[in-house]
Every structure is written in C-alpha cells, then in structure tokens.
Simulated scan of single mutants.
Amino acid sequence: MASDSSKLEDAIELLVRNFYKHAGGNDKMNKEEFRKIITQDLHHILTYTENKEAVDKLIKSVDKDKDKKISFDEYWTLIGTIAKMLSQHMAMQCQK
C-alpha cells in the first residue's frame, strides 16, 4: 500500500497478507495451515489453542462448505468473530 495509508488500511492489508502467507499463496488453506494461524498468530487472543478438540471445533465452525479447506471468506469470518468478542469485552470494561 501507499506510504500514506492509514493504520486501519495497514491492518486490513496485514490480515489479507497473513492469509496468503499461511495458505502458501493459494486461495484456500488446509487444516494444518489454519491451525498454524491459530496457534502462532492468535495465541494471545484465543484461549485453549493447545487443545486439539477446541481448534478442530473452531475449524469446523468456519469451514461452512465442509471441504476441509479454509477459504479467505471463512478466514475473514474468524477475524470478524474475534473482533466481535473483543468489542464485547471492551464494552464491558467501559461499563465498569
């Protein structure tokens, strides 16, 4: 992106690049590539990522077409879900 891009534009670009990095440049990633994103890149936000069953449940919840591959849209759904949980957490903190 341009050097005068906003922090929000930079964040979106980072999310998109992260998907393609883990997917090896493909338009979908396999279960292990997705597991790597969860355990390496989201370990501070998501809890229990060491629990294989929890990760498998997360994979199944975003893999809507059940083809065992995670598309960019499914990855984006995960990011949206995490953002929503953070928003709810922040709203609760503001109410205290």
Rank of each mutant, 00 (worst) to 15 (best):
D10Y: 11
S61C: 10
D27N: 14
M29N: 07
E9F: 02
L8K: 09
K68M: 04
M1N: 12
K66W: 09
L15T: 11
I70Q: 02
D73W: 04
M90R: 07
K60M: 10
S3G: 15
T81E: 04
S3Y: 12
K28S: 00
G80C: 15
L58K: 03
I38D: 14
L14D: 11
I70E: 04
T77A: 01
L15N: 15
A23F: 01
D63Y: 03
R35K: 11
K52V: 08
K68D: 15
E13N: 12
C94E: 11
S71E: 00
R17E: 15
H43Q: 08
H22S: 05
A91D: 15
K28Y: 09
G24C: 13
T47K: 06
E13T: 05
N51I: 03
M85E: 13
Y75T: 00
Y75E: 02
W76L: 05
H44L: 14
T39V: 10
K28V: 06
I82V: 07
N51T: 11
K21I: 07
L46M: 10
K64W: 00
H22K: 11
I38Y: 14
A2Q: 05
D67N: 09
V16R: 09
G25T: 05
M85F: 06
R35N: 00
N30P: 03
Y48W: 15
K66Q: 01
L78I: 05
Q93K: 02
I70F: 07
K64D: 09
K84H: 05
M29T: 01
L78H: 09
K68W: 08
K66E: 14
Y48Q: 02
C94L: 14
Q95M: 12
N26D: 04
